[in-house]
Amino acid sequence: MEVSRLQRRYIDFISALFHEGFLDSQFTELQHLQDESNPDFVSEVASLFFEDSERLLNELSRTLDQQTVDFKKIDAHVHQLKGSSASIGAQRVKNVCLTFRSCCDENNLEGCLGCLQQVKQECYLVKNKLDALFRLEQQILATGGVVPIMSKD
């Protein structure tokens, strides 16, 4: 009873993450790569992503704070963040990165500063959401249940 209630909560929660655009199909792709030999694959890749994004966001803040802004350097950092967010399926982060890169192309400082705030916010939000999702997974496993995974097709 308890397990099925948790599984239902999990399905509702992850469905909302897709519906609200936090995640895309690449996240499901990663979930399908998780198995007994890699039981924490998704959370490990997510941790790596958040460590990397924190470093990149700090670099971006520092670079945008310079007297003369190096837009090429900014663009290179945003490119990395875009690539890694796409790899884990963090769709909203990736979408802000696309706008951010357009602002870099136009040497648009105001736009870049706005995008930096937005991308920080999106990283913060998706991290909280994924932390909650992984906690729910642990609860399901602790009660002897199996985590439901969305089909790829």
Binding site: S15, Q31, D35, E36, S37, V146, V147, S151
Partner: peptide
């Protein structure tokens, strides 16, 4: 959306 329960290795 469709869900399935993954039990065994891929």
């Amino acid at each position: 959306a469709r869900f399935r329960y993954i039990i065994s290795s891929n």
